[in-house]
Simulated scan of single mutants.
Amino acid sequence: MFLKTLHLTIVFTLLCINSFSQLTEQEGYVPVTGGKIWYRVIGKGKGLPLLLTHGGPGGTSRSFYQFVSIGNDRPIILFDQLGSGRSGYHTDTSLLKVPFFVEQVKALVDHLSLDSFYLHGHSWGTALALEYYLKYPQGIKAIIFNSPYFSTEVWKKDADTLISTLPVSIQKAIADGERTRDFNSEAYQNANTVFAKNFGVRNTRLTSPWDTVTAPSNGFIYNYMWGPTEFTATGTLKNYDRIGSLSSITVPTLFITGEYDEARPATVARLSKLVKQSQFGIIKGAGHGTMHDNRAENIRFIASFLQSLEKTNPISK
Protein backbone atom coordinates (compact mmCIF):
# COMPACT_ATOMS: atom_id res chain seq x y z
CA MET A 1 0.00 0.00 0.00
CA PHE A 2 2.86 2.37 0.86
CA LEU A 3 4.58 1.76 -2.48
CA LYS A 4 1.31 2.24 -4.32
CA THR A 5 0.65 5.53 -2.51
CA LEU A 6 4.21 6.69 -3.17
CA HIS A 7 3.84 5.83 -6.86
CA LEU A 8 0.59 7.81 -7.10
CA THR A 9 2.17 10.76 -5.31
CA ILE A 10 5.11 10.80 -7.72
CA VAL A 11 2.78 10.57 -10.73
CA PHE A 12 0.61 13.38 -9.39
CA THR A 13 3.65 15.56 -8.74
CA LEU A 14 4.94 14.98 -12.27
CA LEU A 15 1.53 15.80 -13.70
CA CYS A 16 1.47 19.04 -11.71
CA ILE A 17 4.93 19.97 -12.93
CA ASN A 18 4.09 19.13 -16.53
CA SER A 19 0.81 21.06 -16.33
CA PHE A 20 2.61 24.39 -16.03
CA SER A 21 6.19 23.73 -17.17
CA GLN A 22 4.86 24.05 -20.70
CA LEU A 23 3.71 27.61 -19.98
CA THR A 24 6.45 29.43 -21.87
CA GLU A 25 6.84 33.17 -22.31
CA GLN A 26 4.36 34.16 -24.98
CA GLU A 27 1.64 36.57 -25.98
CA GLY A 28 -1.43 36.28 -28.11
CA TYR A 29 -5.18 36.65 -28.37
CA VAL A 30 -8.08 34.55 -27.14
CA PRO A 31 -11.56 34.76 -28.72
CA VAL A 32 -14.37 35.66 -26.32
CA THR A 33 -17.93 36.86 -26.72
CA GLY A 34 -17.72 40.21 -28.48
CA GLY A 35 -14.12 40.05 -29.69
CA LYS A 36 -10.64 38.96 -28.59
CA ILE A 37 -8.64 39.54 -25.44
CA TRP A 38 -4.87 40.07 -25.48
CA TYR A 39 -2.63 38.26 -22.98
CA ARG A 40 1.05 37.90 -22.17
CA VAL A 41 2.98 35.32 -20.14
CA ILE A 42 6.19 36.61 -18.55
CA GLY A 43 8.79 34.69 -16.56
CA LYS A 44 10.57 31.34 -16.60
CA GLY A 45 10.33 30.45 -12.90
CA LYS A 46 9.21 26.93 -12.00
CA GLY A 47 6.53 27.81 -9.45
CA LEU A 48 2.80 27.71 -10.13
CA PRO A 49 1.64 30.49 -12.48
CA LEU A 50 0.10 33.71 -11.17
CA LEU A 51 -2.87 35.06 -13.14
CA LEU A 52 -3.45 38.81 -12.75
CA THR A 53 -6.76 40.65 -13.21
CA HIS A 54 -6.51 44.42 -13.56
CA GLY A 55 -8.68 47.24 -12.27
CA GLY A 56 -11.11 49.65 -13.84
CA PRO A 57 -13.53 48.60 -15.15
CA GLY A 58 -12.03 49.78 -18.39
CA GLY A 59 -8.47 49.82 -17.09
CA THR A 60 -5.50 47.92 -18.48
CA SER A 61 -2.86 45.46 -17.32
CA ARG A 62 0.02 47.90 -17.91
CA SER A 63 0.74 48.44 -14.21
CA PHE A 64 1.37 44.72 -13.82
CA TYR A 65 4.60 45.12 -15.79
CA GLN A 66 5.94 46.36 -12.46
CA PHE A 67 5.66 42.76 -11.22
CA VAL A 68 7.94 41.18 -13.85
CA SER A 69 10.54 40.17 -11.23
CA ILE A 70 7.98 37.73 -9.80
CA GLY A 71 8.65 35.84 -13.04
CA ASN A 72 11.92 34.68 -11.53
CA ASP A 73 9.83 32.38 -9.32
CA ARG A 74 6.90 31.61 -11.62
CA PRO A 75 5.19 32.67 -14.85
CA ILE A 76 2.93 35.67 -14.45
CA ILE A 77 -0.03 36.02 -16.77
CA LEU A 78 -1.54 39.39 -17.53
CA PHE A 79 -4.31 40.31 -19.92
CA ASP A 80 -6.48 43.24 -20.92
CA GLN A 81 -10.17 42.85 -20.36
CA LEU A 82 -12.28 43.19 -23.49
CA GLY A 83 -12.76 46.79 -24.51
CA SER A 84 -9.49 48.22 -23.23
CA GLY A 85 -5.74 48.04 -23.58
CA ARG A 86 -4.55 45.75 -26.34
CA SER A 87 -7.80 43.78 -26.43
CA GLY A 88 -10.64 44.55 -28.81
CA TYR A 89 -12.13 48.00 -28.18
CA HIS A 90 -15.89 48.31 -27.85
CA THR A 91 -18.70 50.40 -26.38
CA ASP A 92 -21.33 47.66 -26.48
CA THR A 93 -23.19 47.94 -23.18
CA SER A 94 -24.67 44.47 -23.58
CA LEU A 95 -21.16 43.11 -22.94
CA LEU A 96 -20.59 45.20 -19.83
CA LYS A 97 -21.96 42.72 -17.35
CA VAL A 98 -19.94 40.97 -14.67
CA PRO A 99 -20.59 37.42 -15.99
CA PHE A 100 -19.04 38.36 -19.35
CA PHE A 101 -15.85 39.48 -17.60
CA VAL A 102 -15.77 36.19 -15.68
CA GLU A 103 -16.02 34.22 -18.92
CA GLN A 104 -13.08 36.16 -20.34
CA VAL A 105 -10.93 34.87 -17.49
CA LYS A 106 -12.26 31.35 -18.05
CA ALA A 107 -11.45 31.55 -21.77
CA LEU A 108 -7.86 32.51 -20.94
CA VAL A 109 -7.51 29.77 -18.32
CA ASP A 110 -8.76 27.20 -20.83
CA HIS A 111 -6.56 28.56 -23.62
CA LEU A 112 -3.44 28.21 -21.47
CA SER A 113 -4.59 24.86 -19.99
CA LEU A 114 -4.10 26.12 -16.44
CA ASP A 115 -4.85 23.19 -14.16
CA SER A 116 -3.27 24.76 -11.06
CA PHE A 117 -2.57 28.44 -10.54
CA TYR A 118 -2.76 31.41 -8.20
CA LEU A 119 -5.18 34.27 -8.78
CA HIS A 120 -4.40 37.94 -8.13
CA GLY A 121 -6.68 40.94 -8.54
CA HIS A 122 -6.18 44.65 -8.08
CA SER A 123 -9.04 47.10 -7.34
CA TRP A 124 -12.01 46.16 -9.61
CA GLY A 125 -9.88 43.16 -10.53
CA THR A 126 -10.38 41.79 -7.01
CA ALA A 127 -14.13 41.73 -7.55
CA LEU A 128 -13.50 39.92 -10.85
CA ALA A 129 -11.13 37.47 -9.15
CA LEU A 130 -13.73 36.76 -6.47
CA GLU A 131 -16.49 36.32 -9.04
CA TYR A 132 -14.30 33.93 -11.02
CA TYR A 133 -13.42 31.90 -7.94
CA LEU A 134 -17.08 31.63 -6.94
CA LYS A 135 -17.99 30.15 -10.33
CA TYR A 136 -14.79 28.29 -11.23
CA PRO A 137 -12.86 27.39 -8.05
CA GLN A 138 -11.16 24.40 -9.63
CA GLY A 139 -7.40 24.71 -9.85
CA ILE A 140 -7.10 27.93 -7.83
CA LYS A 141 -4.58 27.27 -5.06
CA ALA A 142 -4.61 30.73 -3.46
CA ILE A 143 -5.94 34.25 -4.04
CA ILE A 144 -4.35 37.68 -3.59
CA PHE A 145 -6.66 40.65 -3.15
CA ASN A 146 -4.58 43.78 -3.76
CA SER A 147 -6.40 47.04 -2.81
CA PRO A 148 -9.74 45.23 -2.91
CA TYR A 149 -13.18 46.38 -3.99
CA PHE A 150 -16.12 44.14 -3.12
CA SER A 151 -18.90 46.60 -2.31
CA THR A 152 -19.77 49.99 -3.76
CA GLU A 153 -21.45 51.06 -0.54
CA VAL A 154 -18.32 50.26 1.47
CA TRP A 155 -16.09 51.89 -1.15
CA LYS A 156 -18.20 55.06 -1.07
CA LYS A 157 -18.08 55.21 2.72
CA ASP A 158 -14.30 54.90 2.64
CA ALA A 159 -14.10 57.61 -0.02
CA ASP A 160 -16.24 59.91 2.12
CA THR A 161 -13.92 59.29 5.07
CA LEU A 162 -10.89 60.18 2.96
CA ILE A 163 -12.56 63.23 1.45
CA SER A 164 -13.22 64.54 4.96
CA THR A 165 -9.45 64.80 5.46
CA LEU A 166 -9.01 67.10 2.44
CA PRO A 167 -9.26 70.92 2.45
CA VAL A 168 -12.77 72.32 2.90
CA SER A 169 -12.67 73.86 -0.59
CA ILE A 170 -12.07 70.41 -2.10
CA GLN A 171 -14.86 68.87 -0.04
CA LYS A 172 -17.23 71.61 -1.22
CA ALA A 173 -16.29 71.13 -4.87
CA ILE A 174 -17.04 67.41 -4.63
CA ALA A 175 -20.33 67.98 -2.80
CA ASP A 176 -21.41 70.60 -5.35
CA GLY A 177 -20.55 68.33 -8.26
CA GLU A 178 -22.52 65.43 -6.84
CA ARG A 179 -25.46 67.70 -6.02
CA THR A 180 -25.63 69.35 -9.47
CA ARG A 181 -24.37 66.28 -11.40
CA ASP A 182 -21.90 68.58 -13.12
CA PHE A 183 -18.87 66.32 -13.12
CA ASN A 184 -17.01 68.31 -15.76
CA SER A 185 -16.68 71.58 -13.90
CA GLU A 186 -13.18 72.88 -13.29
CA ALA A 187 -13.67 72.75 -9.52
CA TYR A 188 -14.86 69.14 -9.52
CA GLN A 189 -12.07 68.01 -11.84
CA ASN A 190 -9.50 69.77 -9.70
CA ALA A 191 -10.91 68.02 -6.64
CA ASN A 192 -10.57 64.72 -8.46
CA THR A 193 -6.91 65.48 -9.15
CA VAL A 194 -6.28 66.29 -5.48
CA PHE A 195 -8.02 63.08 -4.36
CA ALA A 196 -6.01 60.99 -6.82
CA LYS A 197 -2.72 62.54 -5.72
CA ASN A 198 -3.46 61.73 -2.09
CA PHE A 199 -5.07 58.30 -2.40
CA GLY A 200 -4.44 57.05 -5.94
CA VAL A 201 -0.84 57.17 -7.19
CA ARG A 202 0.95 59.36 -4.65
CA ASN A 203 4.37 59.29 -6.30
CA THR A 204 5.52 59.18 -9.92
CA ARG A 205 3.80 56.53 -12.02
CA LEU A 206 6.50 54.05 -13.01
CA THR A 207 7.26 52.99 -16.56
CA SER A 208 8.54 49.64 -17.84
CA PRO A 209 10.64 48.50 -20.82
CA TRP A 210 7.95 45.86 -21.39
CA ASP A 211 5.34 48.56 -21.96
CA THR A 212 6.12 49.34 -25.59
CA VAL A 213 2.69 49.32 -27.25
CA THR A 214 -0.04 51.93 -26.89
CA ALA A 215 -2.71 50.40 -24.69
CA PRO A 216 -5.32 52.99 -23.69
CA SER A 217 -7.93 52.53 -21.03
CA ASN A 218 -11.61 52.81 -21.93
CA GLY A 219 -13.32 55.75 -20.26
CA PHE A 220 -16.70 54.74 -21.66
CA ILE A 221 -16.59 51.41 -19.80
CA TYR A 222 -15.40 53.10 -16.61
CA ASN A 223 -18.20 55.66 -16.70
CA TYR A 224 -20.91 53.19 -17.71
CA MET A 225 -20.06 50.61 -15.06
CA TRP A 226 -18.62 52.82 -12.33
CA GLY A 227 -18.92 56.59 -12.74
CA PRO A 228 -17.03 59.84 -13.33
CA THR A 229 -14.50 59.50 -10.49
CA GLU A 230 -13.29 57.03 -7.88
CA PHE A 231 -15.48 58.65 -5.23
CA THR A 232 -18.68 59.04 -7.28
CA ALA A 233 -20.46 55.86 -8.37
CA THR A 234 -23.29 56.35 -10.87
CA GLY A 235 -22.95 53.28 -13.10
CA THR A 236 -24.23 49.72 -13.22
CA LEU A 237 -22.02 48.71 -10.27
CA LYS A 238 -23.73 51.28 -8.03
CA ASN A 239 -25.40 48.55 -5.97
CA TYR A 240 -22.68 45.91 -6.32
CA ASP A 241 -21.91 43.98 -3.13
CA ARG A 242 -20.14 40.64 -2.78
CA ILE A 243 -18.84 40.91 0.77
CA GLY A 244 -21.17 38.15 1.91
CA SER A 245 -19.39 35.72 -0.41
CA LEU A 246 -15.94 36.17 1.12
CA SER A 247 -16.68 33.61 3.81
CA SER A 248 -17.06 30.92 1.13
CA ILE A 249 -13.39 31.16 0.13
CA THR A 250 -11.58 27.99 1.19
CA VAL A 251 -8.08 28.60 -0.19
CA PRO A 252 -5.27 30.65 1.40
CA THR A 253 -5.89 34.33 0.73
CA LEU A 254 -3.72 37.41 1.05
CA PHE A 255 -5.27 40.84 1.54
CA ILE A 256 -2.92 43.78 0.94
CA THR A 257 -3.52 47.48 0.55
CA GLY A 258 -1.65 50.76 0.58
CA GLU A 259 -1.14 52.80 3.72
CA TYR A 260 -3.07 55.68 2.08
CA ASP A 261 -5.16 53.54 -0.24
CA GLU A 262 -8.75 54.24 -1.30
CA ALA A 263 -9.26 50.68 -0.09
CA ARG A 264 -8.63 51.82 3.48
CA PRO A 265 -6.44 49.54 5.64
CA ALA A 266 -9.01 49.42 8.44
CA THR A 267 -11.67 48.22 6.00
CA VAL A 268 -9.42 45.69 4.27
CA ALA A 269 -8.30 44.29 7.63
CA ARG A 270 -11.95 43.80 8.57
CA LEU A 271 -12.72 42.10 5.26
CA SER A 272 -9.75 39.78 5.62
CA LYS A 273 -11.23 38.38 8.81
CA LEU A 274 -14.17 37.05 6.81
CA VAL A 275 -11.88 34.54 5.07
CA LYS A 276 -10.77 31.61 7.21
CA GLN A 277 -7.26 31.18 5.76
CA SER A 278 -6.27 34.80 5.33
CA GLN A 279 -3.32 37.09 5.86
CA PHE A 280 -3.30 40.89 5.85
CA GLY A 281 -0.58 43.43 5.09
CA ILE A 282 -0.17 47.18 4.57
CA ILE A 283 2.13 48.51 1.85
CA LYS A 284 3.91 51.47 3.41
CA GLY A 285 3.65 54.89 1.83
CA ALA A 286 1.39 53.68 -0.97
CA GLY A 287 -1.93 54.89 -2.28
CA HIS A 288 -4.15 52.79 -4.54
CA GLY A 289 -1.36 52.46 -7.10
CA THR A 290 0.64 50.21 -4.80
CA MET A 291 2.87 48.84 -7.55
CA HIS A 292 3.92 52.39 -8.41
CA ASP A 293 4.18 53.92 -4.95
CA ASN A 294 6.07 51.04 -3.32
CA ARG A 295 6.78 48.38 -5.90
CA ALA A 296 9.41 46.57 -3.80
CA GLU A 297 7.13 46.02 -0.83
CA ASN A 298 4.16 45.14 -3.01
CA ILE A 299 6.24 42.43 -4.69
CA ARG A 300 7.67 41.26 -1.39
CA PHE A 301 4.20 40.64 0.04
CA ILE A 302 3.09 38.68 -3.03
CA ALA A 303 6.29 36.66 -3.47
CA SER A 304 6.65 35.83 0.23
CA PHE A 305 3.03 34.69 0.47
CA LEU A 306 3.31 32.34 -2.50
CA GLN A 307 6.73 31.04 -1.51
CA SER A 308 5.45 30.24 1.97
CA LEU A 309 2.59 28.23 0.49
CA GLU A 310 4.92 26.21 -1.70
CA LYS A 311 7.31 25.61 1.16
CA THR A 312 4.48 24.28 3.30
CA ASN A 313 2.91 22.26 0.47
CA PRO A 314 5.77 21.35 -1.90
CA ILE A 315 3.56 19.00 -3.92
CA SER A 316 1.75 22.06 -5.30
CA LYS A 317 4.98 22.99 -7.08
Results as ranks from 00 to 15, higher is better:
L8G: 04
L8D: 07
T9C: 10
F12Q: 14
C16G: 11
C16S: 13
T24H: 15
T24Y: 15
T24P: 11
E25L: 03
Q26M: 15
V30R: 02
T33W: 10
K36R: 14
Y39L: 07
G43H: 02
G43A: 06
K44C: 15
K44S: 15
K46W: 11
P49S: 05
P49M: 04
G55K: 00
G56M: 04
S61Q: 15
R62A: 14
Y65V: 10
N72G: 11
F79G: 03
L82M: 07
G85K: 03
G85V: 01
R86D: 12
S87V: 03
G88P: 08
D92M: 09
S94Y: 08
K97A: 09
K97Q: 11
P99L: 10
F100R: 11
A107F: 02
L108T: 00
D110K: 06
L112N: 05
L112F: 06
S116M: 10
S116F: 09
Y118V: 08
H120F: 14
G121D: 04
G125C: 00
A129Q: 02
E131T: 00
E131A: 05
L134A: 05
Y136E: 02
Q138W: 01
G139Y: 01
I144C: 10
F145E: 08
F145Y: 10
Y149S: 11
V154Q: 12
K156R: 13
T161I: 13
L162A: 10
P167Q: 10
Q171F: 00
Q171V: 05
A173H: 02
I174H: 03
A175Q: 10
D176R: 12
G177Y: 05
T180D: 12
T180V: 10
D182V: 06
S185M: 13
A187H: 01
N198F: 09
F199C: 12
R202N: 09
R205M: 14
P209R: 12
W210M: 14
W210V: 13
T212R: 15
V213P: 04
P216I: 00
G219S: 14
I221Q: 01
N223V: 09
G227C: 01
F231V: 14
F231W: 12
T232D: 12
L237H: 01
K238T: 11
R242L: 04
G244D: 06
L246M: 04
S247F: 08
I249A: 01
P252L: 00
T253K: 00
F255M: 04
F255D: 01
G258N: 09
E262N: 15
A263Q: 03
R264Y: 08
A266W: 05
A269W: 06
A269H: 10
S272A: 07
L274Q: 02
S278T: 02
K284Q: 13
K284A: 15
G285P: 05
G287D: 11
H288M: 06
H288V: 04
G289V: 05
T290G: 14
T290Q: 15
H292N: 15
H292S: 14
N294W: 03
I299Q: 11
R300P: 08
I302W: 07
I302G: 09
S308T: 12
L309V: 04
E310F: 02
K311F: 07
T312D: 06
N313K: 15
P314E: 14
S316E: 15
